[in-house]
């Protein structure tokens, strides 16, 4: 079954749109609704839409690395963000560099969550659809 021409043409556009939106949600999650988890889901939705339009293999190529690798990098980032706290108040105590802009170790943690969610959600969906 071949997806329609409209779906195939729109897939890269929707994916390209989902990325900046997901970054915006990730960044604004500091003080407002949003954050790594939701942002990651939005980005994963872009990947999934791409896979629906162009097929599983195209989406795998689009990601370049296996989804599991994204998860791994994300988890390592999240762990790394907690390590400075180990020397002070306690593991995962977060530190701010520029609180006004939401810059701090918490942002690293959220980026880790973002990558993990993108990896996991894409992995689940790519396993579900047939190439």
């Amino acid at each position: 079954m071949m997806p329609s021409l409209i779906l195939r043409t729109m897939a890269p556009l929707v994916f390209a749109l989902s990325l900046p939106v997901s970054f915006f949600i990730l960044i604004q999650g500091h003080n407002n609704p949003g954050g790594g988890f939701v942002g990651g889901l939005v980005a994963a939705a872009g990947v999934i839409f791409y896979a629906l339009g162009r097929g599983r293999d195209a989406a795998t190529d689009l990601l370049r690395v296996p989804p599991a690798t994204l998860c791994g990098v994300g988890i390592l980032l999240a762990v790394a963000s907690g390590v400075p706290g180990l020397l002070g108040a306690g593991f995962l105590t977060h530190d701010w560099w520029a609180p006004a802009y939401g810059l701090g170790t918490a942002l690293i943690f959220d980026t880790g969550v973002y990558l993990t969610v993108v990896g996991t959600a894409s992995a689940i969906f790519l396993a579900l659809i047939r190439s």
């Binding site: 296996p66 599991a68 690798t69 998860c71 791994g72 990098v73 988890i75 390592l76 762990v79 180990l86 306690g90 593991f91």
Partner: peptide, 24 residues
């Protein structure tokens, strides 16, 4: 003490993450 306390969690977590990065 703090490091020792979280070590049993951090070690398998990091191992799982690193082996996932080396998926291929």
């Amino acid at each position: 003490m703090q490091i020792l306390l979280v070590a049993p969690l951090l070690i398998p977590l990091c191992t799982a993450a690193l082996t996932a990065i080396l998926w291929s």
